[in-house]
Amino acid sequence: MSVSEDVILKVRDLNAYYGAAHILHGINLELSRGEAAVLIGRNGAGKSTTLKSIMGLVRPAAGEVIFEGDKINGLAPYQIARMGLGYVPEDRRVFATLTVSENLEVGRHERPGMKAEWTPDRLFELFPNLAEMRERTANQMSGGEQQMLAISRTLMGNPSVLLLDEPSEGLAPVIVESMAMALRTLVDTGLSILLCEQNLAFAAAICTRAYVIETGQIRHEGTMNELLDRADLRKAYLAV
């Protein structure tokens, strides 16, 4: 494995079930500090389940999740979140009847000893669209605006790793582009990102490393450029 010196998140031999259905068959992956990696694969490959297992929302049957050197599987999701793992779910799941400000308030958590503290004002610099709708309720926002709100809400917890579940899904291409720029900015400030995606171009704009997942197993691991170069991989695991 081409491991860089400072691993912030490590997943070892993760197995998960939904009832009797075996979803994850021994997932292994690593994320270095300050790195953006993508977990890429088709629908139903196990991307979302991997993120939910890391977050404690799905209880893995076997395997380990190690964050900043500590084993975190078995902890409650809120404890994992407070340690610095930020999760942005599929379908955004913003609180529809709460305003933008209130949504951000739910995510607010100061982590002791952290320097870069996110505030609503700093987030509005990152996503200027949101600044104009502080008092608007989330159910009156477009899909793209809701996605920005979902990411901002998670950032309010001052995470050091961001787990993003298909943020580009269902968004207009121009929004996807600005989303990619915002996420790139976040990586530049030192945030680590584990992204789940099907959209290769979007992933390539943000990530430098790629894990290819299919039927609950990691099939390939390498640099983003390698995946872009190898048509055989893309044909086997990504083409629909």
């Binding site: 977050m55 929302l57 409650a76 999701p77 809120y78 979140a81 407070r82 999760y87 779910p89 799941r93 609180f95 529809a96 009847t97 709460l98 209130e102 949504n103 308030e105 739910v106 995510g107 958590h109 809400r153 998670t154 917890g157």
Partner: peptide
């Protein structure tokens, strides 16, 4: 605000660091 958020989506508040 937390009560209203949890009324909508309890699991999400958990994932955002709210002690249920």
């Amino acid at each position: 605000v937390l009560v209203r958020a949890a009324t909508e989506d309890r699991e999400m508040t958990d994932a955002l660091g709210i002690n249920q």
